[in-house]
Design a protein around this nucleic acid. Sequence first.
RNA 1: CGCGGGGUAGAGCAGUCUGGUAGCUCAUCAGGCUCAUAACCUGAAGGUCGGAGGUUCAAAUCCUCCCCCCGCAACCA
Length: 492
Amino acid sequence: MKFCVTTPIYYINGEPHIGHAYASIAADILARFRRLDGSEVHFSTGTDEHGIKVARSAETASMDVHKFSDLMSQGFRDLGKLINLSQDDFIRTTEERHILSSQKLWRLMADDIYKGSYSGWYSARDEEYVSEEDVVDGKAPSGAPVEWMEEESYFFRLSAYQDKLLELYEKNPDFIAPVSRRNEVISFVKGGLKDLSISRSKFDWGIPIPNAPGHVMYVWIDALANYITSLGFPENTHRVSEMMANCVHVVGKEILRFHAVYWPAFLMSAGLTLPKRIFAHGWWTSEGQKMSKSIGNVVDPQKTIEKYGLDSVRYFLFREIRFGEDGDFSEKALQQRISYDLANDLGNLVQRVLAFIQKIGGLRVNYDFTDAEMPLFEDSRNLVEKLRILVDKQDLHGALIEIWKLVSASNKFVNDMRPWELAREDDNRLNLVLTALCESLRAIAFGIAPFMPDTARKIFDFMNVEGKSFKEIEANFSDQVFPSPFLLFPRE
RNA sequence: CGCGGGGUAGAGCAGUCUGGUAGCUCAUCAGGCUCAUAACCUGAAGGUCGGAGGUUCAAAUCCUCCCCCCGCAACCA
């Protein structure tokens, strides 16, 4: 099985914040799950570095634009390290391989590209076109005066793809997720598609268009192409095709249209394989308010992770809200999740079971389960299959809930079975109960492994489990003494 | 009449398609247990289901009207 997952490539015109971390961790969880499940995975992330805004920011910072890009891109690479990203490739749109790839894509789309002229209200001060509705009294929203401009531009015949796109959405109901977003896109496309201006000639910080001096590509062509560059385009066409067919693009809802409309149209035009799914995630507010620099409530991934721990934050982001919806990031909510879900439920379960086994001198297995242990055992062995279905739908929130059902069931099982009494009265039953609990702990550890790799690793080590593949769940435990467990989420 | 989603316990949500005693998580209160990170388990309280009208033996659920909130509405990464 092949699986490909991507994060958006991040525009380097700003510092990494929790939103970037969120998208990246989502993709990381999907990648890790599929690796544990035995798939061949390609997981790419990277930075988008061209465009007028970057050129201008470099100027403002009095830096050479290449140097500026190196610096800003590194910030996102560092973020990846911070959040334990398991990417297979970090791509920069300024790399040679990507320039060649984008130009090749352009050539393949040539039949749908024509030269025309682009006209609109242009703000010289902002160096950008302003849409009709935004022009008030001859002024841009920034207050700068606008003038009617016309320039030579290349256009992509997007209008020719309206029906094909609608057919795509119709035939592949899961192409765009979540459903609410899908409806928005369909309604947008049904509203009629205009041809797209795909070149710029007012600045040169972009990928040169083949045989068109003075023109660089519209950043979105360049940005979207990163996904196939990373897969080896244009050389390795077989792999590109194979992987794209199994590719999930995780994107922010603000860039859904580019991925769900333009990108498939470009690929159709170039005769390339379309991705399997575009998944649009929501946005985080901070303490109930929109994150903004002026309010000063922007959540800094670095500080948050330093304070609360990486796995706790990774858990929180996907447990607190359904993936795809908006949510609120508050320290109180984060602290509660850590305390209740992680320390009290999961951490305490691991501790009470493993410390107990340690106390009685090790695990002596007994798999001749009775009706008392069987349900827990079966739930443990069936967990991955349930998660597979959910993760396939990118329902990461649902997956965590499913795992926590087993955590709760296990805690209840301990209460009901009272192993501390069995230790005095009934060795046979004690072994049955502890064997069933080891099974559930191992299943839980595998379940959380994509979400909280470090925490899962600790549990695996506590139990002498390798932790490399879901297949390990199928093997029975043997009699053994485990290493001493320590607290997974200690209180301050 | 631009398109779409939503308004259900203090908070966040499920239930609406296929009408029939209103459910989940957290918070609150009480009890149980004591292996464990003062953790865990059980039970209780709490809602005129945005408003009005209608259909029906019966409406959160179907119909009509109204109020409120939120997305999308192209060159913005």
